[in-house]
Simulated scan of single mutants.
Amino acid sequence: MSVTQAAFKDGQKWDLNEEESDFEEYYDACSDHYDFDSYKTDFKTSIEHAELALQYFFNNQFDEARNILQPFAETSFYHSLGYAVFSFLEAMLTFENVEGASAKIKKCIELCQLFRKKNTLTESITSTFKKKNYSQLTDQECHAELCLAEALLMNALLTFIEDDNLSGLIRGSLKVRQCYSGFRACEQIMKSREWIFDVVKDSASVSTHFASGVYMGIGTFNLMISILPGRILNILKFIGFTGSKTINKELVLLKDPSQTSQLYYADNRALCLLLRGAFYRQMEQPNLALQDLHDCLTQRGIKEDLFLLPYAYVESALCYVPFNKNQAISMLQDTKKKFSHYALESRLHLRIHMALMDLNDNTDGEL
């Protein structure tokens, strides 16, 4: 039994001050109906729960993941964020129960606000004139900032679905800017905060999880920006958002932050490459897709998410369908020989089987 399972069973430079001001102002109002004495969930345990739920999620054990997250979704921001992700994905994929998903995300935002560092009036005024000292933040307050940024990302995307008229586009664009400010603030925390490692509190693991979340969050954010419609990007530019429209690999695929987070960096970078490669293939841009998928397949240091490689190989094979079906068939057939014993293997085998059937029946290649 792993440590996380046992624990569950037991219980880039910019005007930083301006960005932080925007970030804090938009969600300045916090609910007062929470009783802080009811927050009994241990912070370290909440991270372990989130990690275990993530493992269940990627193994298609969704009920098990929900059962971990739901009991503390009202009191722990990590549990609340994970629980909101389920509703968010359901809303994005089915366009149903969007209001319910939005409510869960807003609940998560409220929780994150409660656990963030509270600045006094003097501190708020002082932060306008000098750089913020992130070393004053506790580990839990740092992670509250990260979870808030991730919740804001989901909230922004849902806004575009809830209301597709001009007012909805503007509101969603403003939320995108808030999300951007949040991730940039987290990036500054990661780079400038003095992390004090405590064996008892497992601070090294807490720091590594934070860095992993920041880099994955920024990568996901830029991936989202790259696929937004042009009219939304124009609004973002109008309101002062400085993100580039061009899909730039240096923005989406971040540099290795440190040796301590090498494992997470490699897996997360490979995942971003696979997602963007798959997107390019669907957009009928096979050359760009193959470049990203090749980088995914040659990514060194992948330790946990071994399924990324066979999935990238299959996506690469499908890129050849429009102009070289024989090569596509050969690559699909080779997948079972090259890769084995990885998560979601049976699902990929089914997809390969269906693709080969379509190719052998001389379909038009739309897989």
Rank of each mutant, 00 (worst) to 15 (best):
L174V: 02
L253E: 05
S261Y: 01
C142D: 07
L236W: 02
S80N: 12
S346V: 04
K325I: 11
C30S: 07
N67Y: 03
D32I: 04
H49R: 14
K175N: 10
T126L: 13
V252C: 13
G217A: 03
A289S: 15
Q188P: 01
T122C: 07
H209I: 04
R347Y: 05
N97P: 00
A270W: 01
N97A: 11
A6E: 01
I227D: 07
E51L: 14
R269C: 11
D35I: 03
L318V: 07
N234Y: 06
F279W: 15
E48K: 12
D334Q: 13
L69A: 09
F183Y: 14
K131V: 04
Q61D: 10
R184F: 05
D295L: 15
V85P: 00
L158F: 01
V176K: 06
N248E: 15
K245R: 13
E194G: 01
E74Y: 08
S192I: 05
D163T: 10
L263D: 06
Q282L: 15
L274P: 02
F221Y: 12
E187T: 05
R300V: 14
A29K: 10
H294W: 05
L306A: 05
A6Y: 00
Q12E: 05
S205W: 00
L146A: 08
Y180W: 13
A84G: 08
E187I: 04
M190Q: 08
V314M: 12
Q70H: 09
T4K: 02
K104N: 10
L169Q: 08
L350S: 13
L251K: 15
H349A: 14
V200W: 00
S205A: 03
S316Y: 04
C296R: 10
R231N: 13
L146Q: 03
F77V: 03
I227Y: 02
E150N: 07
Q55E: 11
D15M: 09
E366V: 13
R281I: 08
Q61A: 13
Y342V: 07
D202N: 10
G230D: 11
R171N: 14
I161R: 12
I352S: 03
V85E: 10
S38T: 11
F86V: 08
S87H: 13
N67G: 07
N360Q: 10
L69I: 09
Q140E: 15
A270F: 02
C272T: 08
T94R: 01
T298W: 06
N248I: 13
A312F: 08
T94C: 02
M283S: 15
